[in-house]
Write a protein that binds this DNA or RNA. Structure first.
Lengths: 202, 202, 202, 202
DNA sequence: TATGAATGAGATTTCATTCAT
DNA sequence: GATGAATGAAATCTCATTCAT
């Protein structure tokens, strides 16, 4: 409201700088000075725009969650059939599109670990997970229903798929050399497909 | 005359204290003082037995990897058939047995994030991942072969399954409230089972 | 709007405080807290202006070397004849003028010992020695030439004179009670004088 | 007296280890563990044979001073004439013989710096300097007298020569690359020779 | 808004010395 | 004599946060 015009831009700039710095150094070693340097700002200014370093992290978690939500909305707009939407979703998350921003992926992994100990981060992380779970469940239920299958296992299947996604991020960030390239999206799609095919009819 | 060395037990004690402390506070906030207090030792003694805090972490990574390897060996001894061995493996990793040590799981998640930025941790983490991948691939290949299926996709399937496991640990540690309980092991088993069933014959 | 930088004066202040503290306690016992106290600053601030304690030492070495260089320039400006310049130089270094800052002399002695083990200090120390050697050689060559003597031994003579100077500093700092007072400058001048007189003509 | 047979040998072993370690790391960084390792002993044993680390240093200073004294006695035994004895002394101190143990030279330089701040070391250092001064003065007086010269300046000349020696050690240890090789002994001898030659007759 | 110096709490690490065995 | 673990004090360094300008 009373913020000067460039405030929002500054905040975004700082949040992005935290993302970049965290992907490289982790959260604790992403010092205010390093973040400021990356953002091409001065340390003092970061505390003008954010109350604390933890606040920047929180803003980042929310920004990443919002970006995911955004991708969902873009996806939901298309009036594709259920199977195509599910396929598109998996590709968006695990395909080359996601791999195109390894920094965000690494930052997300670091955030996941911070969620283990920081209650506020955990809350934001859980909220993002809940949102994603709801979306996934919806996509899977629709796909199951379209095949005339029971939807009772949609929840558990969504959880397994989400875990696979999070684990893929983890492994891509921490052990890229050990994983076969490009395996994730097609294999996930096929696992889901065959699971659905084998489900009993409704 | 001379004093009896007790380094090995002290080191184990310290490593265990790091595990406990890390599970609760993360790596950076697991200070030497906290670790020492948990181990009921003085801070100086930690640096007598380990060169640095990073060294304790490295020892922990190796200990956890060795423990996993140990579970594999125990498993391999049993002369179960391929399917039973695969099922037992998944249960051991994702079932209640694994859940019985949530501390180790949380520590592993934190280690995964540290691997993003610490080269030496990354190397040890990757080694553990490689070992696990090799084991998983062997189990899956055997199961596929036993069904008379092609084994070409064993590698990608192993990667997907490993990702699902790592992601399950992550979600169990950081967003336990959001996940359906006990979903992981049976759902993973079923996904793999149906995938294998749908593979073409060799 | 923005704050005016004062780093240069702070750095000089800190370097001077290290000099004072080192002259009294040596390098290792010149702790950050002691230096800060002497400079009337907080310990943290020292690390804001210098990366490490070793960096302060390096700055001190360079400052002392620069001060010596400065004295040379002031000396060179005077258009005295060769003999007078040489005499003035020896007096400036070994006479009461130099003795007027026993702190700097003691600090220089301590630096010489640190140069034995710290490569970066050694490099800076060597550079100072090289500069001094070049100057001395020039002064001696001019004096020899003015007398019509060969200048082949100017280098070795310069080395001997420099050694005498360094040793005088050492003895003045570590064993002042054992040395005859005020012997250094006149005796050095006379030794050089008689050496030159006895050199063969060019 | 009541010490066990190997005590003296152990002490010598430890003192030598301090010398070696100090030459490389300086006094403060020559830790008990490093010294013990160099002596192939255990840390605890060092404090059995010496009350404190400072005590080992003191023993080292005395050992080095005694070794110099020893060289004097060996020298004095020879019934050379005054000039030859002086020449032999300078060679023994500054010639290749001395350069053959650069470790002892470096240790002596470090001791000189420690003498700036440690009273007990200073006392021992001064005693060594006094002894050396007395010897030098005697040699110079004898040489002057043998030439029929006045001996009034023997003290100041001895001081200058001692300073040159100490400075040579300093420069050889801290700036070896900057000094002409082998300059020290012949140049010192020549400086003294020409000084004496130019002295007035008694 | 913006700067950058300044603070102070706290972290890791070092190490002489002690001491039970 | 000998060992090596243990202690505790102290050192360097880090860094989020504050604040005068």
């Amino acid at each position: 409201m009373s913020r000067k015009p460039n405030s929002e831009q500054r905040r975004a700039q700082i949040v992005q700088a935290l993302l970049d710095t965290m992907a490289e150094h982790g959260y604790e070693k992403a010092t205010i000075v390093l973040i400021a340097r990356r953002a091409d700002l001065t340390p003092g200014l970061l505390h003008y725009h954010f109350h604390s370093k933890a606040d920047i992290l929180l803003a980042l978690v929310k920004a990443l969650a919002a970006a995911a939500q955004q991708r969902y909305l873009a996806l939901a707009q298309n009036t594709l059939d259920a199977d195509q939407r599910l396929k598109a979703y998996i590709d968006a998350r695990l395909g080359l599109g996601e791999g195109a921003d390894p920094g965000a992926v690494a930052a997300w992994v670091v955030i996941g670990a911070e969620a283990v100990r920081q209650p506020e981060v955990r809350a934001a992380y859980q909220h993002a997970v809940d949102t994603e779970m709801a979306l996934l469940r919806e996509l899977l239920s629709a796909s199951l229903a379209a095949q005339g299958k029971i939807t009772a296992n949609a929840h558990a299947l969504a959880a397994a798929l989400l875990a696979m996604m999070e684990g893929t991020f983890q492994l891509a960030s921490a052990a890229p050399a050990s994983m076969p390239m490009g395996y994730a999206a097609p294999m996930a799609a096929q696992l889901v497909r065959r699971f659905i095919d084998a489900e009993p009819p409704a």
